[in-house]
Simulated assay, not measured.
Amino acid sequence: MFDFSLMLEKFMEYRTQIAEAVGETFLMVGISVLAAILLGLPLGTMLFLTAKGQLRENVTWSVILNGFVNVVRSFPFLLLVVFMIPVTRFLVGTAIGTVAASVPLGIVSIAIYARQVEQSLFEVPRGVVEAAQSMGASKLGIVCKFLFVEARSGLVLGLTTSTISFISYSTVMGVVGGGGVGDFAIRYGYQRFETELMAAVIILMIILVQLVQFAGSMISRWLDKR
């Protein structure tokens, strides 16, 4: 029978290591979210703009950008981590550690959020773009002052969903010494047969995901003026 008191006892016993693991997860996910916003948002916007019938319709660029996103999203993540070791070593000087683990996670985050951005922009009514054009707005103005404004709720929800995916991906980063909550659960819980400790860490992960989802949903509803 599962012992909740033992689970709490184990949690308190390893609270320092758990706090360190949570910090590593936050660092990896934080870097991934930053990469998603700084690079995934522009990439997703370009995916939308170069699509058929859009402001910057361009078949060549559409195929190239969609190809990149599709390849990265379909690549088995663990294999991608290993495949990118030379690139990671070149960029940060090492292939081991939390920052190094953030490189492949950041690449995946860019592709995941780019697709979310594209879908959110496609949901904006065509009439919004036509109205902006009739007022003489530039293409940059249409994107920044009309498309992003109309899609802001969906963009936040997309980032929320993506962030939860980043948290899930971060749990396997122990393969390159990235640490994090998932790595802690495997090393201290599974490999040492500490079932209660592993259960405590799983519950902690569930709470973290729920908090991210709650915050994202609240902000999205607040931004939705429709």
Rank of each mutant, 00 (worst) to 15 (best):
Leu140Tyr: 14
Leu159Ser: 08
Phe26Asn: 11
Lys139Glu: 14
Met198Glu: 06
Thr16Val: 13
Met205Tyr: 01
Thr98Ser: 15
Ile112Cys: 05
Ile164Phe: 12
Leu38Gln: 08
Gly189Pro: 13
Val212Ala: 12
Ser62Lys: 13
Phe184Ser: 04
Val71Glu: 01
Ile31Trp: 10
Ser109Arg: 10
Thr60Cys: 05
Glu57Pro: 00
Val181Met: 09
Glu24Trp: 11
Ser162Tyr: 02
Thr16Pro: 03
Glu118Arg: 11
Ala21Arg: 00
Phe90Asn: 15
Ile219Gly: 02
Ile203Ala: 05
Arg226Trp: 09
Val143Ile: 15
Ser32Asp: 09
Gly67Asp: 06
Phe166Ile: 08
Val128Thr: 10
Ser162Gln: 08
Ile37Met: 05
Leu34Tyr: 01
Asn58Trp: 08
Ser102Met: 12
Tyr113Ile: 07
Val63Glu: 15
Phe48Val: 00
Pro76Asp: 13
Val59Lys: 15
Thr94Ser: 15
Ala151Arg: 05
Ile164Tyr: 14
Glu57Ile: 00
Leu208Lys: 01
Val149Ser: 12
Phe90Gly: 15
Ile186Asn: 10
Trp222Ile: 03
Arg56Tyr: 11
Leu39Asn: 12
Val212His: 07
Thr88Arg: 08
Leu157Lys: 11
Gln54Asn: 15
Val129Pro: 05
Ala36Arg: 09
Gly44Val: 03
Phe48Asp: 01
Tyr169His: 11
Ala35Gln: 03
Thr98Glu: 12
Arg152Glu: 07
Leu157Thr: 15
Ala137Cys: 04
Leu34Ile: 06
Cys144His: 10
Gly182Asp: 01
Ile96His: 09
Val181Gly: 00
Arg187Glu: 04
Ser168Trp: 01
Ile186His: 13
Ala19Tyr: 10
Tyr14Val: 01
Lys139Pro: 09
Phe148Val: 02
Ser153Leu: 14
Leu211Thr: 00
Val176His: 13
Phe68Asn: 06
Leu159Ala: 05
Ser5Thr: 07
Ala36Cys: 14
Leu41His: 03
Val63Leu: 15
Val81Thr: 11
Trp61Ile: 10
Ile110Ala: 01
Lys139Ala: 13
Tyr188Glu: 13
Ile18Phe: 10
Ala35Arg: 03
Val172Ile: 13
Leu39Ala: 14
Leu80Lys: 03
Gly178Ile: 05
Gly177Ile: 02
Tyr113Asn: 14
Ile64Lys: 06
Leu6His: 00
Ala132Asp: 06
Ser5Ala: 14
Leu208Arg: 10
Ser162Cys: 06
Ser138Val: 09
Ala199Phe: 09
Ser5Pro: 01
Ala95Ile: 03
Gly106Trp: 05
Val92Ser: 07
Glu24Lys: 13
Leu157Trp: 05
Gln119Asn: 12
Ser134Phe: 02
Pro104Glu: 12
Ala95Met: 01
Ala35Asn: 05
Ile18Gln: 05
Val129Gly: 00
Leu159Tyr: 02
Phe4Ile: 12
Ala95Lys: 04
Phe26Trp: 09
Glu13Ser: 04
